[in-house]
Amino acid sequence: MGKVLYWEDVTEGQEIPPLVKHPTTQQLVKYAGASGDFYQIHYDKDFALNNGLPGVIIHGALKNAWLGQLITDWIGEYGTLKKLSCQYRGMDVPGDTITAKGRVTRKYVQDGKHYVECEIWIENGKGERTTPGSATVILPSRTNPL
């Protein structure tokens, strides 16, 4: 908290500071407990293999949460997250290095509010985009102070 990201300081094409995660099976168990999602593909290796999966996989919703953190860390206290979307196109596994990334695609003013749209995604350790998505935020403006 503390630092303020103003709409004027954001440019289209700008990269969002990436967020790096090192998920472990322990984190998946924690997430299962905290979210109440106890589907066995996230902690039972045999169950996951029997489902035709490569092994235990990361909850899509946990990757969604990291994309949320990517944005809320970037916009800070005075930015407001309006929309957050993602599609789980590829599976991610614990033990890999997972990076949430993003780029500003559009900025505009509507009804006096200062909007920024971004494309966001999750990248696995090989640099493959497994989870593309998008986010829309409202930022404070220097013309209309906090």
Binding site: H59, G60, N64, K82, L84, S85, C86, Y88
Partner: peptide, 12 residues
């Protein structure tokens, strides 16, 4: 019987 999560679009 098998299921996967396909994705989410949130609006706040």
């Amino acid at each position: 019987t098998r299921r996967l999560d396909g994705g989410s679009d949130w609006e706040y």
